[in-house]
Computed example of a mutant assay.
Amino acid sequence: MTTMTYAMADSATMLRRNLLHAKRYPSMTFGVVLMPIVLLLTFNFVFGGALEKSSGGNYIDYLTPGMLLMIPAYITASVAVSIATDTTKGIVNRFRTMAISQSSMLTGHVVGALIQAMLGIAAMVVVALLIGFRPSANIVEWVAAFGLLAMLVFALTWLAVGMGLIAPNPESASNMPFPLIMLPFLGSGLVGTDTMPVGLRQFAEYQPFTPLTETIRGLLMGTEIGNNGIISIAWCVGLAAVGYFWSTSIFRKQTR
């Protein structure tokens, strides 16, 4: 077996470990998946009547694409806490003495979070369809939308890994992703940016979640995408690169 093959096998083992942890301790997973769904229901049924004017149509059709981005944002807290738990409870030191690829622990967390997040996104789509969401997307557009969401999950997860590595304890790690969790609320996911005050509107238009929201909305609802698709992919690739190199650099220093 080659070095790459061993690394892939070790990563698969770590993935099974993380999925088993998620199965045995489902509270964190349910929290990061159910909370965005609760927010979807809250905004649609409590605020939907008042906010429908800004959407120019059926509010659930406007709301759902933006709410789908909540799960990639919320999953960062789960990943950061899991990484911090591993690093503060000595499991990394045990792995260091074993003949395994050291980076496989990080890869297992990232892939495990990706699987959980995509299942959560699928669950939100089902809930949205049950309460009136009516997308016009064909199969190719659905695949493209889920592909973009997967890219975002991958990128944010690597950032969350870095946060978990530098956190002194799991409690601190749970708070560090808060700015990422807030970003979907400060974009075009809930209301159009043209309804916002000037300063907030400028921030909303240039932060990553707005082009991502507009791209997902365009794919699912047929609205104009423009250059938002290219900008979204660039954001995902850039965030993934920063998160990956930052996390692996920290991890190498901690395992020397």
Rank of each mutant, 00 (worst) to 15 (best):
G243R: 14
S188G: 14
K89S: 14
P170Q: 01
F133S: 08
V242M: 08
M182G: 05
G112K: 11
I75A: 02
W235H: 02
I233F: 11
P211W: 06
M8P: 01
G56R: 10
A9K: 14
L40H: 04
E205H: 04
E171H: 14
V126G: 07
T107L: 14
A12T: 13
G31V: 04
I233S: 07
V153G: 00
R24S: 14
M124I: 03
L159F: 04
M124V: 02
V111K: 10
G162H: 02
G108F: 02
M196W: 05
N175E: 09
E141Y: 00
L152H: 00
A80L: 00
L19K: 12
M105I: 13
G147W: 03
A241M: 12
T157G: 05
V153C: 03
V125C: 11
I60F: 11
T64Y: 06
Y206E: 10
G187A: 10
T195G: 04
L114P: 11
T255I: 07
T76F: 08
S78L: 11
I181W: 04
G31D: 01
A240H: 01
G189P: 04
S247Y: 13
V126W: 07
S82P: 02
M221N: 10
A50T: 10
Y206W: 15
T64M: 12
T3V: 13
M182N: 02
Q254T: 11
I225M: 12
I37P: 01
M35C: 05
L40K: 01
S103P: 04
A50N: 07
M28R: 10
G164A: 07
S247E: 11
T255K: 05
P135F: 02
S247A: 15
L239C: 00
M8L: 15
G226L: 02
A113W: 10
L200V: 09
P168M: 15
